[in-house]
Nucleic acid binder design. Structure first.
Lengths: 242, 242
DNA sequence: GCAAAAGTGTTACTGATACACCCATGG
DNA sequence: CCATGGGTGTATCAGTAACACTTTTGC
């Protein structure tokens, strides 16, 4: 631990979302402490001279090996008593050079495509796992607050900028996957025909030659998301009068 | 200056919006430095043991004498070089005990009703003024970035929760004021009849007995905003599929 | 041939837009 | 009596919502 690199007052915590074709999950790290499992969001202190966004990217990269992920700050958490559980205090004392320092943490949301990456064994994570966002799980520190706020902010963000949802899907995906994702985010179910109708009039969804294989039903067509077309066509400037 | 009260690593900066029946303004403070006027957002270091939201409320209260204003954090600004202008560095040196410390600042948006309050002479403001948000004005530090981001975030927020816009209007207001406010936020102009039609089917707008007086045209009816009715009726859960 | 998900159109309804004139007041 | 902004209705258009059956594949 080379604490002299770090600014002991500021940290980042990442809420990393993934979609497994059924539901939305977040990435948690697990550590053993006094024989019990303790779960937490991945995060780290910000280094001296390091930008906040850079610190969050660094945490993501160390954990997933991926770069250029969707990443957005959503809130700063600075309550003076955000670390109050004795178990957490004990943990902090074991890893920080200045455990008594008040730390402000900046919450970041990130979206990853679940297919095709492996967790990287990391300095700060004994074990890494996907956990369903809808399933309650006690987390360390104020991480429940951070995760809940992040999930709320992500949904708000997607309302305004639905494009980012494609960061959760593989490069090629079926309309059923897209609809399931949408339903998982929104929390309601949609009519299949109306959904397809609305989707297919968007030029940014381009049908690929390829179809599903190995499924015991009519194989679905794959689509991909064309970001350039989206940006051209989709000048969302909708305003809602109460 | 009793710096020992303060946490020298964290500050808050407030983007305070007001509506003057024509346009949206933000509150700036002005100081004289080397014979030049320097403009900045109001802000302060966070005190030791003080919550971030509390620090922002404190800045607002010292400036306006008002409490329980609409207040929302919108972003943390933590670039290592956010203070780089020599004029700003000189200023920091003159007021901070640890001028070399890196400071993370948390940006807050606030909405005030312009009618019926006076600026309070404050420890940190030689002069306080309303400045049109649309009119460019160079600000100290990274305050242009903070103000622009705050304005953008406010507009995004109002799209999702238009209710908060009423924090900018007086208790009683005319539909014309409401429409002008809406147009100032959205940046487009609306058809008067359609606007009134949509507004008047909302139960949360309640017509008062009172009408305008002293105007040289047909006096307009006053309305007020009923927050309880709004919360009951207006379960906004609109989702937009691309 | 059966189970399982893909794919496909029409109708009814609801909300948005476009548009022009009379009314009440102060000076 | 004139200038000013307040206040009102209708017709058209576009988008949303509801709804059931046929197709293709693996086993």
């Amino acid at each position: 631990m080379e604490d002299f690199h770090y600014n002991p007052h500021i940290s980042v915590d990442c809420v990393i979302f993934g979609f497994d074709d059924q539901k939305i999950n977040i990435l948690l790290i697990k550590r053993k402490q006094s024989g019990k499992n303790v779960f937490a969001l991945p995060g780290d202190l910000v280094q001296k001279g390091e930008d906040l966004d850079h610190a969050a990217s660094r945490v993501l990269f160390e954990l997933t090996g991926l770069q250029n992920l969707y990443l957005e700050q959503f809130k700063a958490f600075g309550s003076p008593d955000r670390i109050k559980d004795p178990v957490d205090i004990e943990w902090i004392k074991s890893i920080r050079e200045h455990p008594e320092e008040r730390v402000i943490t900046i919450g970041y949301n990130s979206l990853v495509k679940v297919d095709g990456f492996e967790f990287t064994p990391s300095s700060f994570a004994e074990e890494v796992l996907w956990h369903p966002i809808e399933k309650p799980q006690k987390l360390a520190f104020d991480h429940n607050d951070i995760a809940n706020t992040g999930w709320f902010m992500l949904r708000e963000k997607i309302k305004r900028e639905p494009m980012i949802a494609f960061s959760l899907l593989p490069e090629k995906f079926t309309l059923r996957q897209l609809q399931t994702l949408y339903e998982a985010i929104v929390g309601i179910s949609l009519d299949k025909r109306n959904f397809r109708k609305r989707m297919l009039r968007n030029n940014f969804l381009v049908a690929m030659e390829e179809r599903e294989t190995g499924v015991s039903h009519k194989p679905a067509q794959y689509f991909r998301f064309d970001e350039d077309t989206y940006r051209e066509d989709f000048a969302r400037d909708q305003w809602f009068l109460f």
